[in-house]
Lab assay of single mutants.
Amino acid sequence: RPMNAFMVWARIHRPALAKANPAANNAEISVQLGLEWNKLSEEQKKPYYDEAQKIKE
């Protein structure tokens, strides 16, 4: 299954978030990633939607 825009973004940002929160488990990191993603504007998300579309094609 191809990655969606959030997954493209999260793949880039997960390592830094995990390093900054070494005690957090994957579920907690995923929740935090979701919160951070939701704070982004549509303009900030656009490159990730574009990349996800390329992956689908």
Rank of each mutant, 00 (worst) to 15 (best):
E28H: 05
A16P: 04
I29C: 02
A10E: 12
E42A: 12
E43P: 06
E57S: 11
A10W: 05
L33C: 06
A23H: 14
Y49Q: 05
A24W: 15
W9K: 01
W9Q: 01
A52K: 02
W9H: 01
K56G: 08
A24V: 03
L40F: 03
V8P: 00
A16R: 14
Q44H: 06
I12M: 09
Q44K: 07
R1Y: 13
Y49L: 05
A27Q: 11
P22R: 05
I12A: 09
L33Q: 01
L40P: 00
P47Q: 05
E36Q: 10
S41K: 03
N25P: 06
W37S: 00
K45Q: 06
I29F: 02
S30V: 11
E42T: 11
A18C: 10
K54E: 06
A16H: 11
A10I: 06
E42I: 10
A24I: 05
P2I: 14
A24M: 15
A24H: 05
N25E: 04
S41N: 08
A24S: 07
S41W: 02
K39I: 04
K19W: 05
V8G: 02
D50T: 07
L40Q: 01
L40N: 00
R1Q: 11
Y48T: 00
W37A: 00
I12W: 04
L35V: 09
E36Y: 07
V8E: 06
V31L: 11
P15F: 07
G34Q: 15
K46V: 04
A18T: 10
E36N: 06
K46G: 04
A52M: 07
Y49D: 03
K46S: 06
A52S: 05
Q53I: 09
L17V: 11
E51R: 12
S41H: 02
Q53C: 09
N21Q: 05
N25A: 05
L40E: 00
Q44V: 04
E57Y: 07
I12H: 07
Y49I: 09
K19D: 04
E36I: 14
E57M: 11
A52E: 04
E28R: 05
A18V: 15
E36V: 08
N25K: 06
D50M: 13
A16L: 15
I12G: 03
I29V: 04
W9A: 01
P47R: 05
Q53F: 10
H13W: 11
E57G: 10
A27I: 10
L33K: 00
R11A: 14
W37P: 00
K39A: 09
A16G: 09
R14V: 03
A23E: 13
M7P: 05
V31C: 12
P15R: 10
A10Q: 05
K54P: 04
N25V: 03
H13L: 05
K39R: 10
E28W: 15
A24L: 15
S30N: 14
P15H: 09
A10R: 03
E28K: 04
Q32L: 15
P22V: 04
H13P: 00
P2L: 14
N25F: 03
L40Y: 02
N25Y: 03
